[in-house]
Simulated scan of single mutants.
Amino acid sequence: MAKSALITGITGQDGLYLSELLHSKGYRVVGLVRGQNNPKAARLEESHPFVQIVSGNLLDLSSLMRAMTFAAPDEVYNLGAVSYVAYSWQNARLTSDVTGTGVLNMLEAVRLFQDTTGKSVRYYQASSSEMFGKVQEVPQRESTLLWPRSPYGVAKVFGHYMTINYRESYGMHASSGILFNHESPRRGVEFVTRKVSRAVARISLGLQDSITLGNLDARRDWGFAGDYVRAMWLMLQQDQPDDYVISTGETHSIRELLDLSFSVIGIEDWSSLVHVDPRFFRPAEVDLLIGDSSKASSVLGWSPEVSFEDLVTMMVNADIALESKKLPGNPS
């Protein structure tokens, strides 16, 4: 019989790519969507008609239990979170509840479902490189001390250790992917990579004049989301659960991101088109994140396939195509 998978956070970029991957492998895919009349659910039904949608909320254990009963999953991928780091300082409590306590609720729902039905469920937790924060080791690996520098990072640490605790306390097949920054044309426009690709596209089309950013010297290890969801799936195919850093092993600055993005539209000197505003600086900056994914390579056989250059080009071109529809005379 075909496997069944339950995905929280399915309307985000990772959820969309993961659902496509699982569907291609013959899974029954169930997606948890929060609230009634959620506009994201309607868009999901249109773009991914193979996904069965179930209503639920990571803050409501009873709704998660109902979702588990409906999905009867072989695998659960907990991707749901308040995931915009800058927002987490403005709403630290909500971020902590959803991104932290939500993990505990999902783990408990899986445990209770297993105890009630006797069915074995494999669980994936979306951990984050933001947990490393004030980095204590370069590059960062699974054993690196966690030192989060944002409410989001703190909440992710809670979820990460809770996943380990359930694995060790209850023998659950629970694995965490410590994913470094991963992007795509499906990334939200509030994230810096998409903010840049969208602005560059609009500048090329004459729809805006400039872009305003924060710290141009911050460096990140950026990969393609489509590559990273493949690692999630591979983790749950292993005999033993474990934690894995997923990264490219390369680091690039915001300036490099701008160089590549503007080069796609033939602009070499972007200095007059980019403004720096201190309002966009983080209260506690994470300056250098770069991951060591050698464990994932050796155990999972995973490696990234899309380069940083190809990723940036993909995103700018996708936004040019999207923004072109807004020009007069073009169909919407």
Rank of each mutant, 00 (worst) to 15 (best):
S4R: 10
L6Y: 11
L6I: 08
T8C: 04
T11G: 04
T11H: 09
G12T: 00
L18G: 01
S19F: 10
E20F: 12
L32P: 04
Q36A: 12
K40N: 12
L44V: 03
H48R: 01
F50Q: 05
I53H: 09
S55W: 11
G56Y: 08
L59R: 06
D60A: 00
S63C: 07
L64Q: 03
M68T: 04
D74F: 12
V76S: 04
Y77P: 02
A81T: 05
A81R: 00
S96A: 14
S96F: 14
D97Y: 15
G100Q: 04
V103Q: 06
L104I: 15
V110E: 01
R111L: 14
K119R: 14
Y123P: 06
Q125L: 04
G133S: 01
E137Y: 12
S143N: 11
L145D: 11
P151E: 03
G153K: 01
G153W: 02
V154H: 09
K156Q: 08
K156N: 01
F158H: 03
H160L: 09
Y161W: 14
Y161Q: 02
M162N: 04
G177L: 01
I178A: 06
S184D: 10
E190V: 12
V192Y: 02
V192A: 03
T193L: 06
K195I: 08
V196A: 04
V200D: 01
A201H: 02
S204K: 07
G206K: 03
L207W: 15
I211W: 12
T212N: 08
T212W: 13
G214F: 11
N215P: 00
G223Q: 04
F224P: 05
A225I: 09
A225T: 11
M232G: 02
L236Q: 08
Q237C: 10
Q240C: 10
D242Y: 14
I246F: 10
G249A: 03
E250D: 14
E256W: 14
E256Q: 14
E256F: 11
L260I: 12
V264F: 06
V264Q: 04
I265Y: 13
G266I: 09
S272W: 15
R279E: 15
A284V: 14
A284C: 10
E285T: 08
V286P: 03
V286M: 07
V286K: 04
D292L: 03
S298I: 15
W302H: 05
V306F: 11
S307Y: 14
F308W: 00
F308Q: 02
L311Q: 01
T313W: 11
A318V: 03
E323T: 01
S324Y: 14
L327P: 11
P328L: 05
P328I: 03
P331D: 13
